[in-house]
Write a protein that binds this DNA or RNA. Structure first.
Lengths: 248, 248
DNA sequence: TTAATTTTGGTATTTATTACTATAAATATA
DNA sequence: TATATTTATAGTAATAAATACCAAAATTAA
């Protein structure tokens, strides 16, 4: 059934000209360090060819009997300890030649990457250090040249984050479970660019949406009057889920 | 290199337990018949097992050296004659067991579907009749039980259409190149549900966005005062592309 | 003790949305 | 032909929302 990759396939036989694939999942995992206002991406350093010593998105090849999501969760769980992470499929990259392990004559096995977009809480998660390679958080605006087409995948994920932040409550998946309104504001500033709105108006607009509940607890973060800690109320948000709304 | 699918793979050898895939593309192709206010999906009747005589999304398996998008365009071009069609990747479905051709013991070849979302203009496109199977437009709210997991894929595409219509100018990819404002309004009503807005206010909101240009030509569609034909001005829209805006 | 900083509540102005009205220009019909 | 009906289009008043500010409160920093 399978064509010998050394042989040119018979062009007349339709089934013979089909490509054979290995499928990988690659995760674009974001977190935000609110104390330094940094958007971070989890990268791992490759210890094997191809792209040995390059940094890449944490990923894995899909195993027999394994679903795509399971593969995504598996590689995530290997690298980071985080509960309540947000995960959604991002995009699939499968153009011929995207992996140097592919035969340059275009026959033989191809590598397709189904990418996933993940959000974890920086403060509540912990990198699991590996014995044979390094893992690290990288600032999203200071990324080295990555292995494969991972720059493109990362870029795709970064755009998803910026867009989706505007019309869905992604912010509350990267912020700590309890946060001040100023922290929400700074998050939006960091991701969407500095001067996108006035703080005072951002506050009232956000509160009017009605899904942030004041815990009553006050915290002091440096100088100034202490702020209330809020948390995201998913029940209060539920009825708004399918309505078109802008968060900014 | 390839595991014999009859044999249980060696669990100790990592590479042996990787799944082998064929990759298919399946297209969710929408159009809208504005004279009858119908949202249509292009389906084909399968003439082979599995799911012989079931209707399915038009798709194909990716060939050697072929990109995913090329495969999507190839199967599209085989089935429908349409210029200026809109195409974007939708989602990838690759869970084990989604295709009955897969071995039930979870070893052997798996079939992954990368789905694409397409919009064509009903009036300006033409189905290419095939000798060995039928192709037809089906009303989106009157779809038979489809082959494979194509119901799920179609559903995913239908949601994409409904959501994206609210914050991007998809409407002008399904409407004829020149249209009356009432036709835009009816399109939004048909897709988003009857009573979502007042016609008069919808008009002024849409016009204020500034990317519809009046051709000056008046047309009479049945009774009533003739309406202006408008067209979408992509240059005027360009600066708004990255701004968060609601069309409704 | 005073200055600086940050939160929070608030207001006036501008802008947008909404519900509605009126007129224009065609077709349908008696 | 005269009149009713239909649809397009412009416009308006009332309401709601967004925006640009302001000021008091409660803390830390000097």
């Amino acid at each position: 059934m399978k064509t010998n990759s050394k042989l040119k396939p018979n062009a007349n036989s339709k089934s013979e000209s089909l490509a054979d694939f290995k499928v990988g999942v690659d995760n674009v995992i974001f977190s935000v360090d609110i104390t330094y206002n940094r958007v971070l991406v989890l990268l791992r350093k490759r210890n094997n060819d191809p792209f040995k010593n390059y940094w890449s998105l944490p990923g894995t090849l899909v195993r027999q009997g394994e679903s795509l999501t399971d593969a995504a969760y598996r590689t995530l769980a290997e690298k980071i300890q985080a509960d309540n992470l947000y995960l959604e499929q991002l995009y699939s990259f499968g153009n011929p030649g995207r992996d140097p392990r592919e035969n340059p004559d275009s026959y033989g096995i191809r590598y397709l990457s189904v990418s996933y977009f993940a959000l974890v809480r920086y403060e509540e998660s912990k990198i699991i250090n590996q014995t044979d390679y390094s893992i690290a958080w990288y600032r999203v605006n200071d990324i080295p040249k990555l292995a494969f087409d991972h720059d493109k995948i990362l870029d795709y994920g970064w755009n998803r984050l910026k867009n989706k932040l505007q019309y869905s409550p992604l912010a509350f998946d990267v912020l700590p479970t309890e946060f001040t309104l100023n922290e929400v504001y700074k998050l939006y500033c960091t991701i969407l660019g500095e001067n996108f709105s006035d703080y005072s108006n951002f506050r009232s607009r956000l509160l009017k949406l009605g899904f942030l509940s004041d815990t009553g607890v006050k915290v002091s973060r440096g100088a100034g009057r202490p702020a209330s800690l809020y948390k995201f109320d998913s029940e209060a948000f539920a009825p708004l889920k399918d309505k078109p709304l802008l968060f900014i």
